[in-house]
Amino acid sequence: MPHARKVEQRRFEQRQLEVAQEAAGTAAMTRSAYFEAVAARQLTGYFEQVREAAELSRDLAQRMAEAGNAPRLAHMREQAFYAEMTAQLARSRHRAIAAREQLVRMLGLTSVQGTLQLPERLPELPTTPAEAHDAEQTAMDRRLDVLAAARASEAFARSLGLTRATRFVDVLGAGYVNESESREERTDGYEVHLSIPVFDFGDARLARARAGYEQTLARTADIAVKARSQVRETYSAYRTAFDLARHYRDEVVPLRKRISEEALLRYNGMLIGPFELLADAREQVGAVNAAIEAQRDFWLAESDPRTAMTIGPPRWHRRLPANARVRPSHRRRRTLTD
């Protein structure tokens, strides 16, 4: 094979990889934009409820002030809180629009009206999380940048005219230089291999060529090590996001609901008043909001392990800037008669 053609072959493979990564990246970005848009819309509903609770407190305080039961100061405090919540709702509504427009751009839609119908809520969590069986091995077998590095290494050997592979070495476990099998780095029950052929260089005059080949092997090993690390990290992020979303759904939200039920019992007994009850309702909505955010974070992290296993490094910092989290204060506020 002429040298130029081999170079072209390498360039082609490199470009192929880049395109695949780009396509995967675009898909992931679009996916993210979709979940962000759905979540932002859901969260706006939350801000509406918080503002509604603040509005009720304000209205009640106003009636009390008019009836002579509370000072104007109490009414003004409730009014100030309501005003703040109104501003937050406006910001939240813009965030929902911005997230939606981001999705529109990602999808390349020309006319928004009637074409982009977002669901009311995020999809439910899967019943069980995906397990990480063979994830790292899959990355070694299928991940594009790893395969490209291995192919480049082989191509280099071929360019030197080397064809007779004497044996294979695992660039992860044993390395090229030290072929001993004692350097087991994992002890948790599975092994990951990335096998590369070792050629018989024979003549000492090929020492430079050999050094060059070793370099390609080192590069392959480096990419493979990073790939494995990324697989582990993305899986941890995935699994943590799953556990957190489930934790919010199964623990935090039901607990807050029970707290609200107890608060209502205390209200029934005139142990607390309507202002405390409304403040508690706001806190309960806050827990639901946190659950929505956790659910969204799960779906944002959901495809990363797959990307890390099959394509290349996932874009970890692709979260939309419009998604900066602003939440109303949930601290228990002073009652009117404090």
Binding site: M64, I272, L336
Partner: peptide, 10 residues
């Protein structure tokens, strides 16, 4: 509750 809002007449 001794600190609850007085809603008499509201």
């Amino acid at each position: 509750g001794h600190g609850i809002a007085n809603l008499v007449g509201v």
